[in-house]
Simulated scan of single mutants.
Amino acid sequence: MKTVYRKIRRGSVLPDSPLDASPGGPKCQRATNFEDQLDGDACKEAMSLLNHATDKFLDRKGLVDQDFTLLFDADISSRLLQKWDTFFRPNVIKEAKRLSSTAELSQLLLSAEGDLDEARIYDQEMASLLLLIHLLPTPPGGPKSPKIGACDAVERLVIFHKSCGSLEEHLQNNQHQHPYLLAVGRQKSKIDSFYITLDKHLIPCQANRFLGAFDELFKAHFVFNLSYDSALVSFYTFLQTTVYNIDVGKMKESPRVKDLRARLFNQTVTLS
Rank of each mutant, 00 (worst) to 15 (best):
C205S: 07
R209H: 14
F210W: 12
N225R: 09
K144E: 11
S145E: 14
L226K: 03
I203M: 05
L171Q: 03
Y180Q: 08
R186W: 12
Y180A: 01
C164G: 07
Q177V: 12
F222A: 05
Y195M: 03
I196K: 04
Y180K: 03
K147I: 07
C164Y: 15
G149R: 01
L202Y: 01
N208Q: 15
F222D: 06
S193F: 02
V158N: 00
F160E: 00
F222M: 06
A153D: 06
F194Y: 15
E155N: 12
Y180T: 00
H201Y: 15
L181I: 09
C164H: 11
N208F: 11
E216L: 08
H170A: 01
A231L: 11
F214P: 02
F160C: 05
K147W: 11
L211F: 09
I148D: 05
F210M: 04
F210H: 01
G141E: 11
Y195C: 00
A153P: 07
D229S: 14
S227E: 04
V184Y: 00
K200G: 08
F222P: 02
S145K: 08
H176N: 12
F194G: 00
Q206D: 10
I203V: 14
V158F: 02
V184G: 00
I196M: 09
S227W: 00
K162N: 13
R209Q: 15
G141K: 09
I148R: 07
G149L: 09
L167C: 07
G141W: 15
K144I: 07
A231H: 14
D152R: 13
K219D: 06
G212R: 02
S227H: 09
P143W: 06
N174F: 07
L226Y: 03
L167H: 02
R209G: 04
L217Q: 01
F222H: 01
A153G: 12
F222T: 05
F214H: 06
S163Q: 12
K219A: 02
R156W: 06
V184C: 09
A231D: 07
G149Q: 11
K188M: 11
V184E: 01
N225E: 12
L181K: 03
Y228F: 14
K144M: 11
I159N: 05
S145G: 01
P146A: 07
S163M: 04
S163L: 13
E216P: 04
D199V: 08
K147G: 04
E155H: 15
C205P: 00
H201C: 11
H178Y: 15
E169G: 04
L171M: 14
N173V: 14
G185Y: 05
I159A: 08
H161L: 14
G165V: 12
H221V: 05
Q172A: 15
F210V: 03
G141L: 14
N225W: 05
L157H: 05
P204C: 08
E169T: 12
I203A: 01
S227T: 00
E216N: 03
R209M: 06
V154I: 15
F222V: 03
K190N: 06
A213R: 03
H178Q: 10
